[in-house]
């Protein structure tokens, strides 16, 4: 049954996720190539000194991309379900509504995880070739909250899209903006290291929120 839901999600979103993955990998590659070019043009010593003296990771070009991909993923997956209340069909499937919607979210999460890992691998390959481990890990650590923001944005957007009551949607949107702001307070490399312990549950805990919207949908709440 879960495979069937994955199949449905694949039909619905394959083009979106293909483009989103290419974008993410493309931008990560660009960031990696950019580091290499800065090193080639200014000298590796200048690049190293830049990292040791400035609070800059030089990869901020990808900062908002995971967030946008997460929001887009949720919209492409769940907006068609809300069109003419198509979600009723999904909730009517004989596997329990938590399981069916959970499988849909698992599909999106899986693709986002895959995209994120590829991005990190691309960045690692480019950076580790020219920079020492201490700087490479600082660069990757800087990108972790941005990718966590992508996951959180994905779940929060589902929460908002599935909610049938507009007044609640407004509240949810405002709250979501502030929650996402928590992931992008600073660009200082490695600044989020002591906060990963609560950022990870904050990001993935947001996956619980669509249950509230689904409950409102099932109870037929409306403005």
């Amino acid at each position: 049954m879960i495979n069937a839901i994955f199949y449905k999600e694949w039909i619905k979103t394959k083009w979106y996720y293909a483009v989103a993955c290419l974008l993410l990998i493309g931008f990560a590659s660009y960031a990696g190539i950019y580091l290499k070019r800065v090193g080639d043009l200014s000298g590796m010593a200048a690049l190293w000194e830049y990292y040791l003296s400035k609070d800059d990771s030089l990869i901020t070009i990808i900062k908002y991309l995971p967030l946008i991909v997460g929001i887009g993923g949720a919209v492409f997956q769940f907006a068609p379900e809300m069109h003419r209340k198509c979600l009723k069909l999904t909730l009517h499937l004989p596997c329990g509504y938590i399981k069916s919607v959970g499988a849909m979210m698992l599909f999106g999460t899986g693709i986002l995880v895959m995209c994120s890992l590829i991005c990190f691998a691309v960045l690692y390959v480019f950076a580790s070739h020219i920079l020492p481990n201490e700087i490479v890990s600082r660069i990757l650590l800087t990108a972790i909250p941005w990718f966590l923001a992508g996951f959180c944005a994905y779940y929060l957007t589902i929460w908002v899209v599935v909610e049938p009551v507009w007044k609640k949607r407004v509240f949810q949107t405002i709250l979501s903006v502030f929650v996402l702001k928590l992931f992008i307070i600073t660009d200082t490399p490695g600044a989020y290291l002591p906060s990963l312990w609560w950022l990870v549950p904050l990001a993935f805990g947001a996956a619980l929120l669509p249950v509230i919207s689904l409950s409102d949908f099932k109870e037929g709440l409306q403005d």
Binding site: F178, V179, G205, A206, L208, V211
Partner: peptide, 21 residues
């Protein structure tokens, strides 16, 4: 599950209020 989601929502809302207000 809904109860856990509500607890999560209350905690997050409280954190955002204590931060932003």
């Amino acid at each position: 599950m809904k109860r856990i989601a509500q607890i999560y929502l209350i905690i997050v809302t409280a954190v955002i209020c204590l931060w932003q207000l």
